[in-house]
Amino acid sequence: MSDPANITLVTMDGTTFTVPSAYLHRSKLVQDWLRSEGDKQAMEVKHVTPFVLQGVLNFCEIHAEDTSEPLADPADPTKPFEADPRDDAFRGMPDDQLLQFTMAADILQIPELVRLTAQEMASRIDGKSPDQIRAMFNPDDLAEEDVDSDNEMGEVGEEGAISK
């Protein structure tokens, strides 16, 4: 049986991280796992690389003793978001890493980290064209029918602008 004071996480390539369970008290996924399968040796965190998991755990350690109320999941977008200087590392990371951290925050269900990375993604996207956004985050390729759909959508915007 694992030590209840610590939790071991295993990433997609088998790398293990053992940290105090208290670090992850805001992770709904971890809390659910501790309740249902806490007697197992380690929790697998598939789809997360060691580099990203290390960053997530750093965030959790920094905020382990925060006493603020947990955020709703999903967070209420109308609530003001106050940047915390302790999170500057997340705001300075490259686009592809930011995307991976956003995914990891979502997988581990940590609303505070989801809000932080989502806010950062939103501020980077703001004012950008579709081509610029594709260059930043390289999302899934467009299928033929999607191109048609997008063009159609674009026409509406162009015509809307003219009609105004």
């Binding site: 996207i125 703001d126 950008k128 956004i133 594709r134 999302p139 467009l142 997008d150 959508m153 602008a161």
Partner: peptide, 22 residues
Amino acid sequence: ALEHHFGRSTLFECSLVSRDWH
């Protein structure tokens, strides 16, 4: 909705990025 289209808001631009984003 109309202002999103007239003004080509960022959200409107996002809808043209990919199928998922749309």
